[in-house]
Simulated assay, not measured.
Amino acid sequence: MVTCTLETPRDKAMRLVREKDKIEQEIAEWNAVLNANNIGMREPLVDSEGFPRNDIDVARVRHARHRIICLQNDHKDKMKEIEVALDEFYAGGRADGAGPSNMNVHQPNANGHVPNGHIPNGHGSNGYLPNGHASNGVANGEAHQPPPRNEASIEQQVTPIALVVNVCEGSPADLAGLRSDDAIIQFGSLNSRNTEEPSLAPMEELVTHSIGRRIQVKVKRGNSVLNLVVVPRPWQSDDNRQSLLGANLRRITN
């Protein structure tokens, strides 16, 4: 006799996150092909005379670009599936009164890799809190209470220093997952606590000195805070504008 085991909302969410991770890993591998050829998603593959460039592996780059576009579309679809699964997961938790306190599913960074968010299971010491510590409240027979929050500290932590005005398709900012209207909370080592300069000069200087290097970026998008990684590199838009990010930012001062 064959026994069918129904997939729980939590199991479904975890499976989808694993599938998402595989997509991001493959995006990272194809991005490595572009990086090896010192090229991005938009630069021309022919020289000024219309011949294939001899400084890159044109066929390999063309295939890598195609795969990245396909995988990015797959990733968007997978994120929609995860969103539905999370709704089911939270709804189940509310129904039995033991729902999770938080779940993080991050957007991909420039290399296609994102930090994995723990999916809490709500069962005693096996349930992970957002800070990575196991919750033992249920195991001790106590009702779980959220840890006390320092509102002043939280407010300071989420104070944005810049707003993303627009992002060019295929640019380093686009590959990192930055979107228009994202509020930048942290840009590398820069945040509201150490950046009093009313201009974008500190951020521009950091970008200039970080070509080919990873910059950790924390943004507030709606009610979510996302951890992204952008890798500045020379990039040219369709209208021949030169940039290292491919995004317009507006400084926010308090």
Rank of each mutant, 00 (worst) to 15 (best):
H63R: 12
N227E: 11
V114F: 11
K218W: 02
A162W: 09
Q72W: 01
I23G: 04
N191H: 10
P232T: 09
R241L: 12
V229G: 00
P202K: 03
T253Y: 02
V46I: 15
N240S: 13
N102K: 04
A13E: 05
T159P: 00
D182C: 06
K76I: 11
I161N: 09
P147G: 03
I185F: 02
G141E: 06
A28I: 04
N254I: 00
H113S: 04
R18S: 12
P172V: 12
A91C: 03
P232M: 06
D21P: 01
L6P: 05
V2A: 13
N31D: 08
Q107F: 05
N166I: 01
R60P: 00
Y128L: 15
S125V: 14
S48R: 14
S135Q: 14
G93H: 10
A247K: 02
S48G: 05
A152L: 14
A64D: 06
G188E: 02
L129V: 00
A32E: 15
E81L: 13
N240F: 08
K76M: 05
G141K: 10
N104E: 08
P120R: 06
L16N: 08
L228G: 03
H209G: 03
P198C: 08
T195H: 01
V33F: 04
N109V: 00
G124M: 09
L244G: 00
R214F: 05
L34F: 09
V2C: 05
H106Q: 13
L45A: 03
P9F: 08
I68F: 06
G132V: 10
S101C: 06
H106S: 07
K220D: 01
N240G: 01
G99I: 07
T159Q: 14
L163M: 13
I27R: 02
G117K: 00
D11E: 15
P148T: 11
G124Y: 03
N150R: 12
D238P: 00
A110K: 00
N121T: 13
E169M: 10
L16K: 14
S171D: 08
D96V: 06
R233N: 04
A13G: 04
Q156M: 13
I211D: 07
M79H: 04
A36N: 13
M203R: 01
M79I: 04
N166S: 15
P198H: 05
Q156K: 15
S224Q: 13
T8D: 09
R15P: 01
V225N: 12
I184G: 04
V167P: 07
N109C: 12
Q145A: 10
K76V: 08
V158K: 03
S192M: 00
R42K: 15
L228C: 02
N227T: 11
Q145M: 06
N73D: 15
N140C: 03
D74P: 02
P232W: 07
K80V: 07
V46K: 14
T159L: 15
C168S: 12
I56Q: 04
K12S: 14
P148E: 14
L226R: 05
P232V: 07
K78P: 00
L34R: 10
A134Y: 07
S210P: 05
I56M: 08
T159V: 09
N223S: 13
R241C: 10
R18T: 08
R94D: 04
V217R: 03
L175H: 00
R149T: 11
N121C: 14
P52T: 11
N223T: 11
F187G: 01
R193L: 11
